[in-house]
Amino acid sequence: MTDKKKTSVIIRKILLYITLGIGVILSIFPFYWMFIGATNPSGAIFSVPPNLLPGDFLVENFTNLNENVGIIRVLMNSLIIALTFTFFAVLIAAAAGFAFAKYQFKGRNAIFFTLLLAIMIPYHVTLIPLFQMMADLGWLNTYRAVLLPNLAYPFAIFLMRQNMRSIPNSLLEAARVDGAGEFKIFFQIVLPTMRPALAAVAIFLFMFQWNNFLWPLVVLGDSDMYTLPVALSSLVGMSRVDYGQIMMGTTLSVLPIMIFFLLLQRQFISGILGGSVKE
């Protein structure tokens, strides 16, 4: 009897691992293919049957890429923009989320509702007026033109508000009774308890800004100011495309996201789930 049970457990485990293994291969293969592309000359990507072995073109692809787009400068632009943006946008989202969740004020629901509506406006609609505004301010070709328009990010505020609602009111009241000011409550009590949610929002916003393409493309005219996606896209001409360089650049652009995610993944998952269940 126990033997039977044991074998059935083992079979189940084997099945489970096979399924998971297939999932792993499916999700890792595109990255592997990208890496293969980055180490081979451009034409190799078209060979049939596909070439699955790393080549010796890594250095050459990197050198060409660096010559074409100045990859170090471009990486710096992307990092500066994405990190600055993430820091301030998370702070704003947390503060706004806290206010929406915990303060009673006139028009609170109306404002929140308007904010939710803003999520639904396709960004294409605001592209040209916003561009015009940046041009009038003389901000074209600056970091702030990329950073400022999205700094109060509606979805992030919404996510923070949902999470902030789970903070017990009694905790805040106790702090007030003890004489803590509102800023002290926010920075010393609310933010530390919200760490998983903050990490989730931070990853989300970092990825948004890191991958953001159209807006930086339009407002950053000078190739010295390009972010990674914009610089990579500039490699795609008409009938002549060097896929080796593009795959090299894509590999470089994925690395920071992977690192960022691996560092924060525990928080990321608990943060997305946070607020979904009332305990």
Binding site: I128, F131, Q132, L140, L217, S234, V236
Partner: peptide
Amino acid sequence: IGREDLYDRLTVGLASGGSG
């Protein structure tokens, strides 16, 4: 500038009166 990117920027720039 990438080919499609050039058209995107050209269209946005022309639509907003020549900026950038």
